[in-house]
Computed example of a mutant assay.
Amino acid sequence: MTTMETTPQGSASGSSFYAAMRILPQEQRDAMFLIYSFCRQVDDIADSDGPRPERLAAIDEWRRDIDALYAGTPPARVASYVPFVKRFDLRRDDFIAIIDGMAMDIPADIRAPDAKTLDLYCDRVASAVGRLSVRVFGLGEEDGLLLAHHLGRALQLTNILRDIDEDAGLGRLYLPRESLNAAGITSSDPATVVSDPRLPQVCDDILKQAISHFVTSDKIMARNSRRIVRAPKIMSKYYHAILNKLVERGFALPRHPVKLSKAAKIFILIRYAFI
């Protein structure tokens, strides 16, 4: 994973998220940048190199602030959330889930979690963001929750595959214990695992899960108004393109970093922004 004093738009301007959200009407765009800013601020606490007790205290302060927001007494840093919470019926539980997800890396770095824990992590740090987002986009309740579930997991699993080496450098390993065991890898040391020649077998298992979630999320978006799902579709296409590039590169050593070119991002944006 990854405090902002700049505007949400400014801090997001270099990201795929920014391009996808810029196509939204003003009120929706402002709500999405607020959600992005919240996630970044909490994520920055989890990813900082400060003492773990201090990071836990900072995370707990965010929980208290969100509770106060929903109790009607918002502290200054979440006062601007009030109109968006009311306008889009944003749920407290989803904000808290994001905080809880970021906090999972603080007591100790995540290393080879079991599959259930990994799924919980994906739900908190990705699908909970989706649950807030689909309310802003205007999806119906049932399909909104389904899209948040599947697209959130697709994006997060793609992140995990893309960032294997970067995460290992931070002492983290998000690959599930069951997949490692199935490949015959018994170590949970990140540096050891990422240099193991059996790693591609582990990644193939995660790859199949990500593809399945992308397929399901595409089906959900296909049955909804194209204008309502433009932003999540652009995000889906960005990340699916990254996943395809990972497949082309493979997961055996040496692994060069994978990212989309500016031209590829523009092509996706033009193709899906104006439908």
Rank of each mutant, 00 (worst) to 15 (best):
M1R: 01
M1H: 05
T2L: 11
M4K: 06
T6L: 10
P8C: 08
Q9R: 12
Q9I: 00
G10Y: 10
G10C: 01
S11P: 03
S13K: 14
Y18Q: 00
A19D: 04
A19W: 15
I23N: 10
I23Y: 07
L24K: 02
P25N: 08
Q26S: 14
A31P: 01
L34K: 05
I35K: 00
Y36Q: 02
S37Q: 09
R40P: 05
Q41R: 14
P51V: 02
R52H: 11
P53F: 02
E54Q: 10
A57T: 02
A58P: 05
A58R: 10
D60W: 02
R64Q: 10
R64I: 07
I66H: 08
I66Q: 07
D67N: 12
Y70C: 03
Y70T: 00
G72F: 07
P74M: 04
S80W: 08
S80I: 04
V82E: 11
F84I: 00
K86Q: 15
K86M: 04
K86E: 15
R87S: 06
L90A: 01
D93P: 07
I99G: 06
D100F: 09
D100M: 03
G101D: 02
M102P: 05
A103M: 03
D105R: 03
I106Q: 07
P107K: 04
P107F: 07
R111M: 01
R111V: 02
P113H: 08
D114P: 02
A115G: 01
K116Y: 07
L118Q: 04
L118I: 02
C122Q: 06
D123M: 06
V129P: 08
S133F: 01
E141D: 11
L145S: 04
H149W: 06
H149M: 01
H150V: 00
G152R: 04
R153W: 06
A154N: 01
T158W: 14
T158Q: 09
N159H: 14
N159G: 14
I164Y: 15
I164V: 15
G169K: 12
L170S: 13
L173F: 12
L175N: 07
P176L: 07
P176E: 13
R177S: 15
R177L: 15
L180H: 11
N181Y: 08
A182H: 15
I185C: 09
S188T: 13
D189R: 13
D189W: 05
T192C: 12
T192F: 11
D196N: 15
V202M: 05
D204Q: 15
L207I: 00
S212H: 14
F214C: 00
S217T: 03
R223T: 07
I228A: 14
P232K: 13
K233Q: 12
K233M: 13
I234V: 09
I234S: 00
M235F: 13
S236M: 10
S236W: 06
K237M: 12
K237C: 11
K237V: 04
Y238S: 10
H240C: 05
I242Q: 01
L243R: 14
L243Q: 09
L243T: 05
F251W: 15
F251S: 03
P254G: 10
R255F: 13
H256N: 12
K259G: 08
K262L: 09
K265V: 04
K265M: 05
K265Y: 07
I270G: 08
R271Y: 04
A273E: 01
F274D: 00
